[in-house]
Simulated assay, not measured.
Amino acid sequence: MCGSLPCQPARLLLLLDYRRDRVALSIHMAGCLFDATADLLTTNPDPADLFERFIGWTARL
């Protein structure tokens, strides 16, 4: 799943897998963001948008 944005079904699976440790989920998704940054910046240069798409959703209930 790293290297691409998680779709809604994948997000739900990630939330289930990390249901007891949201911090670990955020760390995992930060690693995915790091891996994908070079490719994504060529198509989407807004870092705030990339943060929201990879990590921002993990903090919501």
Results as ranks from 00 to 15, higher is better:
residue 54 F to E: 00
residue 2 C to V: 02
residue 47 P to I: 04
residue 38 A to P: 03
residue 59 A to W: 14
residue 46 D to N: 13
residue 24 A to W: 02
residue 8 Q to E: 15
residue 30 A to W: 03
residue 9 P to Y: 07
residue 23 V to G: 07
residue 47 P to T: 05
residue 45 P to E: 04
residue 14 L to H: 01
residue 45 P to V: 07
residue 25 L to E: 02
residue 6 P to R: 04
residue 40 L to G: 09
residue 44 N to A: 15
residue 17 D to H: 14
residue 51 F to L: 11
residue 49 D to G: 02
residue 18 Y to V: 10
residue 38 A to D: 06
residue 52 E to G: 07
residue 44 N to F: 02
residue 34 F to P: 00
residue 42 T to Q: 12
residue 39 D to Y: 04
residue 56 G to C: 03
residue 4 S to M: 07
residue 55 I to C: 03
residue 32 C to E: 06
residue 50 L to P: 04
residue 32 C to G: 03
residue 59 A to L: 12
residue 27 I to K: 05
residue 36 A to T: 08
residue 38 A to N: 04
residue 61 L to C: 14
residue 24 A to S: 03
residue 17 D to A: 15
residue 26 S to L: 08
residue 59 A to P: 07
residue 27 I to Y: 05
residue 13 L to Y: 09
residue 25 L to C: 06
residue 32 C to Y: 05
residue 10 A to V: 14
residue 18 Y to R: 06
residue 39 D to S: 13
residue 7 C to P: 08
residue 14 L to R: 02
residue 49 D to V: 05
residue 15 L to V: 09
residue 1 M to C: 11
residue 27 I to R: 04
residue 51 F to M: 03
residue 7 C to D: 13
residue 25 L to Y: 05
residue 27 I to E: 04
residue 21 D to F: 10
residue 7 C to S: 14
residue 36 A to K: 09
residue 52 E to D: 15
residue 21 D to E: 09
residue 4 S to K: 08
residue 31 G to R: 05
residue 26 S to E: 06
residue 28 H to Q: 13
residue 41 L to C: 03
residue 43 T to P: 04
residue 53 R to M: 00
residue 19 R to I: 11
residue 24 A to L: 13
residue 13 L to I: 12
residue 35 D to S: 11
residue 29 M to S: 08
residue 2 C to Y: 06
residue 11 R to K: 15
residue 5 L to K: 02
residue 31 G to C: 06
residue 55 I to K: 00
residue 56 G to Q: 00
residue 1 M to D: 10
residue 50 L to F: 00
residue 20 R to K: 14
